[in-house]
Computed example of a mutant assay.
Amino acid sequence: MTRTPIRYLTIGAGCAVLNNAILIGADFSGLHYTAATALTFVTTVPLAYAAHALWTFNARLSWRGLARFVAGSLSSLMAAGLTIAALCGGLALPMVLAAPLATAVMVLYNFFMARWAVTPTRCPEG
């Protein structure tokens, strides 16, 4: 179980690099940032799901797991926006502090979301 967070962070870092490469490449090619964000989502999320299922959590791939992962990833986008809004707007923190705090919160949120999405639920025995 101690390897799981390390594996999660490894996959997460790889996805972050891929995400940034797509965003930067799309920007250089003139693609609008909303379209670039959609492109990163449809590219990175399925790859992240497969990597987390197979390597991080040692689970089988399934359409249900992918659907849960996509839903969790969409909720993560909303949670990140709300976190930044709360830190910047509500607490009036400068972005230089809010962004790292939001990132730390989102790493934890995304870890538990990914584990929920990828790990099959089991009925209790008894």
Score class of each variant (00 low, 15 high):
Thr2Lys: 10
Arg3His: 10
Thr4His: 07
Thr4Ser: 10
Pro5Ile: 02
Pro5Ser: 01
Arg7Leu: 06
Tyr8Trp: 03
Thr10Pro: 04
Ile11Asp: 00
Ile11Met: 00
Gly12Asp: 03
Ala13Val: 00
Gly14Arg: 00
Cys15Tyr: 00
Ala16Ile: 04
Ala16Thr: 05
Val17Thr: 00
Val17Leu: 02
Val17Gly: 00
Val17Cys: 00
Asn19Phe: 04
Asn19Trp: 01
Ile22Gln: 00
Leu23Asp: 00
Ile24Gln: 00
Ala26Lys: 01
Asp27Val: 02
Phe28Ser: 06
Phe28Cys: 05
Gly30Lys: 01
Leu31Tyr: 02
Thr34Gly: 07
Ala36Trp: 00
Thr37Val: 01
Leu39Ala: 03
Phe41Glu: 01
Phe41Pro: 03
Val42Lys: 02
Thr44Met: 05
Thr44Val: 11
Val45Leu: 05
Leu47Val: 09
Leu47Trp: 06
Ala48Tyr: 02
Tyr49Gly: 06
Tyr49Gln: 07
Ala50Phe: 06
Ala50Lys: 06
Ala53Cys: 09
Leu54Ala: 13
Trp55Asn: 05
Trp55Thr: 06
Thr56Val: 08
Thr56Pro: 00
Asn58Ile: 06
Ala59Tyr: 08
Ala59Lys: 13
Ala59Pro: 10
Ser62His: 11
Trp63Leu: 14
Arg64Lys: 15
Arg64Asp: 09
Arg64His: 13
Gly65Gln: 12
Ala67Arg: 14
Arg68Ser: 14
Arg68Asp: 10
Phe69Gly: 10
Phe69Arg: 14
Val70Tyr: 11
Ala71Val: 14
Ala71Thr: 15
Gly72Cys: 13
Ser73His: 13
Leu74Gly: 12
Ser76Asn: 14
Ser76Thr: 14
Ser76Glu: 08
Leu77Trp: 13
Met78His: 07
Ala79Gln: 09
Ala80Ile: 09
Ala80Gly: 15
Ala85Ile: 09
Ala85Thr: 12
Leu87Asp: 12
Leu87Thr: 13
Leu87Val: 12
Gly89Ile: 09
Gly90Asp: 11
Leu91Glu: 09
Ala92Asn: 15
Leu93Met: 15
Pro94Trp: 09
Pro94Phe: 07
Met95Thr: 11
Val96Arg: 14
Val96Glu: 13
Ala98Pro: 11
Ala102Ile: 08
Thr103Gln: 11
Ala104His: 08
Ala104Gly: 11
Val105Gly: 07
Met106Thr: 03
Met106Gly: 05
Val107Lys: 04
Leu108Cys: 09
Tyr109Cys: 04
Asn110Tyr: 05
Phe111Tyr: 15
Phe111Lys: 05
Phe111Pro: 05
Phe111Glu: 04
Phe112Ala: 07
Met113Trp: 04
Ala114Tyr: 06
Ala114Arg: 06
Arg115Thr: 08
Arg115Ser: 08
Arg115Gly: 08
Trp116Gly: 08
Trp116Arg: 12
Trp116Glu: 08
Ala117His: 11
Val118Phe: 09
Thr119His: 08
Thr119Leu: 12
Thr119Gly: 07
Thr119Val: 15
Pro120Ser: 09
Pro120Glu: 11
Arg122Glu: 13
Arg122Gln: 13
Arg122Trp: 07
Cys123Tyr: 07
Pro124Tyr: 07
Pro124Met: 09
Glu125Tyr: 07
Gly126Ala: 14
